[in-house]
C-alpha cells in the first residue's frame, strides 16, 4: 500500500531518468576482471592439489599398466590391463578386502554407539560431569602410535595385563619372520583375535572424537523437546529412540561416512601392532597391503593397482551410504 506521501514522490521519480546504466562493454570487462581475480586466488590451492593429489592420482593409473620385474634393474613391462585383472581377482586382494571390511564393520558402528552412549551419559547437569567429559574426550589428544603402544603393552605375551586373552595354537604363531619390529607385537594371536585386538585399539583411540562429535550433536537437541516428550508421557528409553536419536541422525550419518573412510585407510596400528599384517595376513588391511607391496616387495605396479582399488571401494561405499542411509537422516530443525 502506498501512503499519500509515496504517491506524491512516485511520479517525480518516474519522470527523472534513473542512474544511467553502465555501457555494456564496461560491465562485461568488470565481470571478466572479477572472474579473473577469482581464478587467480584459486590458483595456489589448485597447484598444491595438482602436485600432491591430482598428479599422483593419475600417475597411479599409469603405473598400474606396468608390471614390476622380479629383480631390480630390469626394465618394466607394459602389460596394460592384465595387471589390474590379475591383482583384483587374486585371492590375496580379496582376502585383504575382506579383512578391511570386517575391520570397518567392527570399528565404525561400535565406535559410534559407544560415543553416543558416553555423550548421553555426560549430557547431564551434574556436579563434576566436566571431569568425565574431559576423560571421555581425552583419547582425541592421543596419537594412534601412543594407543598402539598402550594396547601393545597390555596385550604383550610376555608382560601384558591381557595376555590371558591370547589363546595358544603356537603353530599359527608368527609365520613370517619379522625383522625390525621393536614394539611388543601381537605375535601369538590366533587370527580373528588379532584383528579384534587391532579393532579394539582403534575404537579406543577414536572414542574421544566420537564422543566429542556426538556431544556436539546432542547440544543441538533443544532441552524443551526432551521436556515436551517427557510430559507427553515418554520414558527415558522412548525419549532416546524417538527424540534424541532422530535429531542426532545427521551427526551419526556424518560420523558413519567419515569413520568408514578412515577405517578403510587404517595403517598405523596395523604397522605397529602386527607382524606385517599377520599372523597369516589376518590383519592385512588394504592400506597395509599397499604399503607392504611397495615397501617390502618393491612392486610399485601392483601397489598402484591396489591403491586405485582402495579408492574405488571407498568411493563406492560412500555412494552406497548416501543412497541408503541418508534417507533415514532428518535434517529438519
Amino acid at each position: 500500500m502506498s501512503t499519500p506521501a509515496d504517491a506524491v514522490v512516485e511520479p517525480g521519480a518516474a519522470s527523472r531518468p534513473a542512474v544511467a546504466p553502465a555501457p555494456r562493454g564496461r560491465r562485461f570487462n568488470r565481470a571478466v576482471r572479477e572472474a579473473g581475480l577469482g581464478y587467480l586466488l584459486l590458483l595456489p590451492a589448485f597447484l598444491i592439489f595438482a602436485v600432491f593429489i591430482f598428479y599422483p592420482f593419475f600417475r597411479n593409473f599409469y603405473l598400474g599398466f606396468f608390471s614390476t620385474p622380479p629383480f631390480p634393474g630390469q626394465p618394466k613391462n607394459y602389460v596394460g590391463l592384465d595387471q589390474y585383472k590379475d591383482v583384483l581377482t587374486s585371492s590375496e586382494f580379496l582376502d585383504s578386502l575382506k579383512v578391511t571390511v570386517i575391520f570397518a564393520v567392527i570399528t565404525v558402528p561400535v565406535g559410534i554407539a559407544l560415543g553416543i552412549l558416553l555423550a548421553v551419559l555426560a549430557h547431564q547437569k551434574l556436579k563434576g560431569v566436566a571431569i568425565y567429559r574431559a576423560f571421555f574426550s581425552s583419547t582425541v589428544a592421543t596419537s594412534i602410535a601412543v594407543a598402539s603402544v598402550i594396547f601393545g603393552t597390555l596385550l604383550s605375551p610376555q608382560v601384558g595385563l591381557l595376555q590371558g586373552i591370547q589363546t595358544e595354537p603356537s603353530i599359527l604363531q608368527n609365520p613370517d619372520p619379522i625383522i625390525n619390529i621393536s614394539l611388543p607385537v601381537i605375535r601369538s594371536f590366533i587370527p580373528s583375535v588379532a584383528l579384534t585386538a587391532v579393532a579394539v585399539t582403534t575404537i579406543w583411540q577414536n572414542l574421544g572424537l566420537s564422543f566429542i562429535l556426538m556431544s556436539a550433536g546432542l547440544q543441538a537437541v533443544p532441552d524443551e523437546l526432551q521436556e515436551a516428550a517427557e510430559i507427553d508421557g515418554a520414558g527415558p528409553w522412548r525419549r532416546f529412540w524417538n527424540v534424541t536419536l532422530p535429531l542426532l541422525s545427521p551427526t551419526i550419518f556424518f560420523a558413519f561416512v567419515v569413520g568408514s573412510i578412515f577405517a578403510f585407510q587404517t595403517f598405523g596400528q596395523i604397522d605397529l601392532l602386527t607382524p606385517r599384517g599377520g599372523p597369516l595376513k589376518t590383519t592385512n588391511v588394504l592400506t597395509y597391503y599397499i604399503y607392504d607391496q611397495l615397501q617390502f616387495s618393491k612392486n610399485d605396479g601392483k601397489a598402484a593397482v591396489l591403491a586405485i582399488a582402495l579408492f574405488g571401494v571407498t568411493l563406492l561405499l560412500t555412494l552406497i551410504q548416501f543412497q541408503f542411509l541418508e534417507r533415514r537422516v532428518s535434517y529438519e530443525r
Binding site: 533443544p222 523437546l225 521436556e227 515436551a228 517427557e230 510430559i231 520414558g235 532422530p246 535429531l247
Partner: peptide, 20 residues
C-alpha cells in the same frame, strides 16, 4: 510422580514440536 505420569499437557513458548 514423574512428569510423564502426571497427566498434564504443556504448550511451550517455542512450541517444542518434534521437527523430524
Amino acid at each position: 510422580v514423574e512428569a510423564k505420569d502426571r497427566d498434564v499437557a504443556m504448550v511451550f513458548q517455542s512450541y517444542a514440536l518434534y521437527p523430524h
